[in-house]
Amino acid sequence: MLLADIWYPNWWQALILGMVQGLTEFIPISSTAHLRVFPALVGWPDAGASFTAVIQLGSLLAVLIYFASDLRQLLLASWNAWQKRDFHQEAWRLLVGILVGTLPIVVVGLAIKVIWGSPPRQLWVIAAAAIGLALLLGWAEQTGKRERDVHSLGIWDGIWVGLAQTLALIPGVSRSGATITAGLFLNLQRSVAARYSFLLGIPALFLAGGLEFISDFEVEALLSQAVGTVSAFVFSYLSIDWLLQFLQRSSTWLFIFYRIGFGLFIVLGLTLGFLRP
């Protein structure tokens, strides 16, 4: 893409796009999909994968602040386990699981970046991914026993959930949707699966946002990126708090039905012509 072809949202457009990012990043309905579909509905150009990745840094900051106490305890306990060479401690297993679980999406993401530049963002792909993950999430909701709590998490959980996280490189899948689905298949409680999804997303969000900011740095984009990042931070924090409380008392069927409806809406829009592929 030529530099002249790149669209930079103005400050109020970036504010709205940041709000969309924040509200949908951690809820399992795909932030990337909504950042692709919403501009198409209102007649804006696609801001692109780079803008999306950079404003995700606001979502990352929201996770770091929301779970600051948990992260501090995890790191201190893991350091204590390392000093004592006690690698069976719960905190150590959880930390290693998060780090190992990050490797698949880093490797696959870099391969896509080198070979194709960015994943496909066509609306047909997003529609198929939205519906496909909804069916998987429904299956996990039906079959998962939801009997495991946070104390049972180990390295293998990180590996399996981390492999599922690579599916989020397909727009429309949703990183949180893929990881929560994997967590339910592993018989985690819903709120534990969501919390683990948030923690596992910290390295992925940092690497994706940082890489895109450095590799595609443009002075013209700084204002929109800054406004979008701040907006994403505020609404991400609110959505994290809401989702954890929601999953303590409710199932994921609301998101399953929403994803199916969202996917069908895209198909309808493409068929009738009020959305362009």
Rank of each mutant, 00 (worst) to 15 (best):
I126R: 06
L71V: 11
F233C: 13
D70E: 13
D216W: 11
L272P: 06
I112V: 03
K145Y: 14
S231T: 09
Q189V: 08
P120K: 07
F262P: 12
V54W: 09
Y258F: 11
L2S: 15
V234T: 10
I115H: 09
L57T: 12
D216M: 12
Q122E: 14
V63K: 01
W12A: 12
I112S: 01
I180E: 09
S236I: 07
S191Q: 13
I214M: 11
Q21A: 07
R85F: 05
R121L: 14
L153V: 00
R148N: 05
S191I: 13
W92Q: 13
L244P: 00
Q165K: 00
V192I: 10
P171L: 07
H151V: 13
S231D: 07
Y196H: 06
V108A: 01
A128H: 02
Q83R: 12
R121Y: 14
I16E: 09
P9A: 09
L153D: 00
A178Y: 00
A182L: 06
V108G: 01
V234Q: 09
L74W: 13
L3M: 15
L15N: 03
S69F: 15
L3H: 14
R72P: 15
D149H: 05
L163V: 11
I55Q: 03
A62H: 02
A49R: 14
Y8C: 15
L169A: 03
S250N: 12
I65S: 07
S251A: 06
I126D: 06
V63L: 02
L61D: 10
Q89F: 05
L99P: 04
P119L: 00
P277A: 07
G172V: 10
G273M: 07
Q248S: 09
S152P: 03
G210Y: 05
A221Y: 04
F206P: 10
S231V: 11
P45I: 08
G132V: 09
L243T: 01
P104F: 04
D86S: 08
I266L: 03
I55R: 04
L76A: 14
A164R: 01
G263S: 04
S191Y: 13
A129T: 01
A182H: 02
Q13V: 09
S69P: 15
P39R: 11
A194Q: 00
P119S: 03
Y196N: 04
P171C: 10
F213R: 12
P120I: 10
L186F: 07
A204R: 06
Q122K: 13
L99H: 08
E212G: 02
L268K: 14
L244V: 00
V42C: 11
S231N: 06
Y66G: 09
A129G: 00
S251F: 01
T143E: 14
R259N: 05
R121C: 13
H151F: 10
F206C: 13
L133Y: 04
T32N: 12
E212N: 04
G183L: 05
G263A: 03
Y258A: 03
R249H: 08
R195C: 07
A232E: 09
Q122F: 14
P119C: 01
P39M: 11
I180W: 05
K145A: 13
K84F: 11
F87K: 06
T52A: 14
G43N: 12
G177M: 02
W7C: 14
L135A: 11
M1I: 15
I180M: 06
F246A: 06
A193V: 02
W160G: 05
P120R: 10
P119K: 00
Q56C: 11
D86Y: 04
Q122H: 14
A62Y: 03
T179A: 02
